[in-house]
Design a protein around this nucleic acid. Structure first.
Lengths: 233, 233, 233, 233
DNA sequence: TATGAATGAGAATTCATTCAT
DNA sequence: TATGAATGAATTCTCATTCAT
């Protein structure tokens, strides 16, 4: 899993940075703890993404992380809390990526198209995010509701999307009366369903939905659907 | 234990009675068998829908069905096969409902709108279908691929949708070049994502997405999106 | 442990009896279940008596019973419920033995002396009863309070003791105003403390309290104390 | 983590300060050590008294003491040794209290009554002592036997009690032939059993044995029983 | 066809204890 | 002296599945 290695790398870099800037000896100890926590989190993310909450095994997470099983409980109390932590971390990551889009700097229609493309690509590159969400919803989003770190979950994109829609409306480009929440949900939906259910869909339609061609066609279709909706006519 | 002996006695009597009143023993038994199978299937559907494949418990399915656990294995070999059977039955049901729509009798745009509304309402009334699909996809649709009863899974709707789109194009009402599979996936996606992930979304947006008003707004939005896309301008 | 073998024997006899009186085949199945339950109960009694509730190990109970660990949970849900069942069974046994004393047929002072002797001998022969009670009390008698089978716990001896004290008072032999509960508690206390804490006491006093001579002296002392209290002067 | 570094700094400062203000470093440290040891001992006493040896948790003892778990091992090697230390300390305390009674200064019958009352009150005010003894006895008093500090355990009261009994006999007040060990055990027994098993007894008799009235009645009863025994007639 | 009893492999979680600083 | 991190061996409990009737 490439994203996992990337995360690992980032951690290593971050640690190295900390070492070089702070001369204090005591950092070494602390660093290990933070690092262990992060390693467990990554291992758990992989496991939960692969097998769901019910199918995930603490033993396997311990193996993946090359750390002691006991340590998982030391840092994360129990399986449910670990899942919650994983979920929060996944949300944090996507929010972090969203921030880098700088949609406010784009023309309204370009901004919408960029958002559709970003969503598609993010889900494509982070399949674990989809599985995680599915698991969370199977459990009635109990873990999200219990999350005290709600800040990480709440997308600032809705507000931004509202501004873009308003800008487009004022310039006469977009139709009026569009609810940014509905639009955001629809944009996510079009990518999510296709990717999350692609194995079922591929089996049922008897055609591979993940070939480069199929994927590119899907992206075009989605842009047409969404832009066809927001543009004046 | 006396009650146990008494029960035995009752069984003997019942058997004797059945033998004397029903002309063919095998018929009586066969009928019960079908019934037991069906009861188990329903109980399993509920269980799998509530807890996913990994979280479902054979014990609970036995309890739900008020039948013996051993009988589940008698009819369905193992948990995975049972899940597969449940999945097939769920697909059969939705196909059955789709057939009753008679879309071919409707005007193109009315047909599309009806399909959107039907999809929305079916998912709304059959939340277990969504959870089931999620579980199936978590397991890479292994159960669907292994299904010998693929006929039940394959929707005849794609073909029908193609005809409707063609009719609309010929009448000048619809734009051309629409892939019925893409459209079908999008129609399903818009309802599916909203309903399947509603608890997460409600938590994140801090607004209840399942109030009557919210649901009616979602349906309007989806119709606008889809019809905005298929209609000429 | 002799009492354990005796219990086993009784079970075997009971089972044999049931087999001989009821010709029904179905009994065989039921009998096995009852027998397994009884065997587990005996094994658990030994384990809890030896190590207390906290120190007892389900694994060891399984070994002792030569039955599957899973079966313990099948019949007794969890460790606490098993402990409760053991406790109830221990109380049932002592109540059963008490009934055989027929104190009502004895002269008042003979009845009291018999009760003191019985208590002493029962505790002596059933050391597990003492340990069990200690464990129960460590947990604030939670298991007793939760017991639905309270009937088994409540001693009919208090009422009987009241009658004996009244008879003795009327005959002029006994002093008046004796609370049967206080007396019962004191009779139990004198034996219980000596036997339950005998290892501590032996260590502290540097003398073996369990030699035949020491035991006989203790019994004499207790009779003197109790009779010295109830008799008129 | 910055706070960690800050804490480190504080530690360094504190150490430096102590070094400069306290003439001897070792004294300052020793004093802290004694204090830590004592704190742990108290925390352990509470824990063992609440849950027994088997149910006690080192983690909880660390929490209670607000000290590090590692320190417990530093001072007390392992759980068993800690329990032994707790036991010794509990015995030391009761011996200390007994010494303050000055029974030798009292009239024989007053001395006996005082001893009964003291025993009752001490157990009442130190319920942890009872639980501790129960635990010790569950383990066959292994911890007492292994105690090298046997001096603390051995009650000087037996000798004193012998003298009192002799004084009473000579004055004609008491009967002769009373074994002070038997009497001491009986005095302890009457209070111990009532208090140690009070939850069971309350549940079984269906009456609260710990109301002020019930407690006062018990004390009267015990005095009557013991004095009725030692007094000439 | 139907069922209660039985089981082995494995799951989450706990616990006393040690390491490294 | 003091402490946070780490661990292996248990321990309770679960689960799909089979046995015997």
């Amino acid at each position: 899993m490439e994203w996992c290695q990337a995360l690992d790398l980032i951690n290593v870099l971050v640690n190295y940075f900390e070492m070089s800037v702070s001369p204090s000896i005591s950092v070494a100890k602390t660093r290990d703890a933070e690092r262990s926590r992060a390693i467990i989190l990554v291992a758990a993310l992989e496991e939960f993404a692969s097998f769901g909450l019910g199918g995930a095994r603490i033993d396997r997470i311990a193996e993946r992380s090359k750390l002691n099983k006991r340590l998982i409980y030391y840092y994360f109390s129990d399986k449910d809390s670990l899942f919650q932590a994983v979920l929060e971390s996944a949300y944090e990551q996507i929010r972090e990526s969203e921030k880098k889009l700088h949609l406010q700097a784009l023309e309204p229609s370009a901004a919408i198209r960029t958002l559709v493309e970003f969503t598609w690509n993010y889900y494509l590159e982070h399949p674990e995010f989809l599985t995680l969400l599915n698991s969370a919803n199977l459990h009635k989003a109990r873990h999200i509701q219990e999350s005290t770190n709600a800040r990480a979950l709440n997308s600032p994109l809705i507000e931004l999307l509202g501004e873009i829609l308003e800008r487009g409306r004022l310039s006469g480009e977009f139709r009026g009366g569009i609810d940014p929440v509905q639009l955001y949900v629809s944009i996510a939906a079009l990518s999510y369903f296709y990717l999350s259910n692609n194995s079922s869909l591929s089996a049922i339609f008897g055609r591979d939905l993940m070939t480069p061609k199929a994927k590119s066609e899907r992206l075009s279709h989605m842009c047409e659907v969404i832009l066809g909706y927001v543009l004046r006519n």
